[in-house]
Design a protein around this nucleic acid. Structure first.
Length: 417
RNA sequence: GCGUCGGUGGCGGAGCGGUCAAUCGCACUUGGCUGUAAACCAAGCGCCCUUGUGGCUACGUAGGUUCGAAUCCUACCCGGCGCA
């Protein structure tokens, strides 16, 4: 019996479904939004608040926890115990950092291909030489301040710590080994997350490499008999914004004996639904699918419609920390002047503990005065907003009212913008 | 009263003859954030024309020197400090 299992409670559409994901530390009712706890902490949100905020599970990061020291976490009994959370846990493999500390370092690049894409145009203009861009940037200017952060080869990735410049190396085997030490219920294969503007040839090269790494990750995991009984492993589909690569990737990853699947990398915003449809069509129905790092309310609806079960995203906590508040009428900037004397809750009618207690004017004041409590309250509200949205979506799927719920929600959500 | 230092945009504080509507910080206004390098980043911030190698008014006040002054000179006003 595998440590991870998935049960489809109701298939609601061609792909969408409500289900239950069982782990050694309890179940997650899906669709679900999993909180990001990169460094064994959901920024601004103590684990004691998880239940009230509807947080069913968390995802921590291999790269960050490796750099900050694994021994204490291992001795504590794993990330979950370490952070005093008894529910289901996941760890990301560190593959995303190949991107964010590699080609993405020093740039403001989102996971989505920007509509205006200066990089592409620049490439097209100068591209007499066709072929792959370098897999990672050795930028001498950055090197002087931060070191050379990520370089990829067939075996793995060499990293320079963003904290102290020390050199480290991850391979699929090493990532899995670290994830064993971290002890989360679900671990992820080591992959390469590519930049949204990566050209086709490079994207394919990275995808093929990710497939090889997936096999090695899987093998490394299955070989460890004890951990294999305690932790499940997800393979990650790549392929960037190219539908044909995505399909190929999904087929290949689906052909491996993973317990579930992560869908990673970057997307073209316009085509995301079509791409996810195609990916999930290739993945075995009975296994769970996690859409990595995606997270705006609009995107969750798209993911669910396309058959994704779990989601994670830094946005609720990052937006919260920086003053962005999710409301059913759209996102608002709570530090803005208009909320100085607004004595309504952050989101009127919201059931979260923050909205039960505090006003916009107060949270506005906390941000203006740079009180720590401002980002804390905002993060907690936002987290509730996303977990609750997923929960409402789940209920709608069970009731067969998903489309109506989605259309009603989005109509209001987009009203103000 | 004498001496001395100083008065710059909401505040602090640069500038000390042209390239100054004036460095910078704070404050203020707004925008962004999608497997967290992020309690962060960006833009704006005298007035006017929605445009610009645009116009106007500005560096205590009033004059003056100069092709040209926030920058030099004179007087005055105001403030700090020292001595009476």
């Amino acid at each position: 019996m595998r440590p991870i299992s998935f049960e489809i409670t109701k298939s609601a559409g061609p792909l969408s479904r409500a289900g239950v994901l069982y782990t050694p530390h309890g179940a997650i009712e899906t669709p679900a939004f999993v909180a990001v706890a990169t460094k064994a902490n959901v920024k601004g949100v103590p684990s004691t608040a998880f239940q009230a905020l509807g947080v069913q599970g968390i995802i921590a990061n291999t790269y960050h926890l490796y750099l900050s020291g694994l021994e204490a976490i291992e001795k504590a009994g794993g990330v979950g115990k370490f952070m005093a959370f008894s529910g289901p846990t996941m760890t990301d493999s560190g593959g995303f950092q190949v991107f964010s500390l590699g080609v993405g370092f020093g740039k403001k690049i989102s996971k989505f291909l920007p509509e205006e894409n200066p990089f592409l145009r620049r490439d097209e203009r100068h591209s007499s030489e066709k072929g792959s861009p370098p897999p990672a940037v050795w930028d001498e200017d950055l090197a002087t301040s931060h070191g050379k952060l990520a370089i990829i080869d067939e075996e793995g990735v060499s990293f320079t710590s963003h904290l102290d410049g020390t050199l480290h190396r991850f391979t699929p085997e090493r990532s899995v080994e670290i994830q064993h030490q971290l002890g989360a219920d679900i671990i992820f294969a080591f992959d390469e997350c590519t930049a949204p503007d990566a050209e086709y040839d490079y994207q394919k090269e990275a995808m093929d490499r990710t497939h090889r790494w997936a096999e090695r990750s899987l093998k490394a995991h299955r070989q460890n008999v004890q951990k294999n009984n305690e932790q499940g492993i997800y393979g990650i589909v790549q392929g960037g914004r190219y539908a044909d690569l995505r399909v190929q990737s999904a087929k290949e990853i689906a052909g491996m004996d993973f317990d579930g699947f992560g869908i990673g990398g970057s997307f073209s915003k316009q085509d995301i639904l079509g791409i996810l449809d195609k990916v999930n069509n290739e993945l075995p129905k009975e296994k769970p699918r996690h859409l990595l790092g995606i997270g705006e309310p609009e995107d969750i609806f798209i993911g669910v419609a396309a058959g994704c079960d779990t989601f994670d995203c830094v946005l609720p906590t990052r937006n919260g920390r920086t003053g962005g508040i999710y409301t059913r009428g759209g996102k608002i900037q709570i530090p803005n002047a208009e909320y100085r004397e607004d004595f309504l809750p952050l989101d009127k009618g919201c059931g979260c503990p923050v909205c039960q207690t505090y006003t916009r004017a107060y949270v506005h004041h906390l941000f203006r005065t740079k009180e720590l409590l401002g980002p804390v309250l905002a993060s907690q509200h936002n987290l509730y907003f996303l977990t609750n949205l997923a929960k409402q979506i789940r209920n709608a799927l069970l009731d067969g009212t998903f489309e109506k719920f989605r259309d009603d929600f989005l109509a209001k959500y987009r009203l103000t913008k």
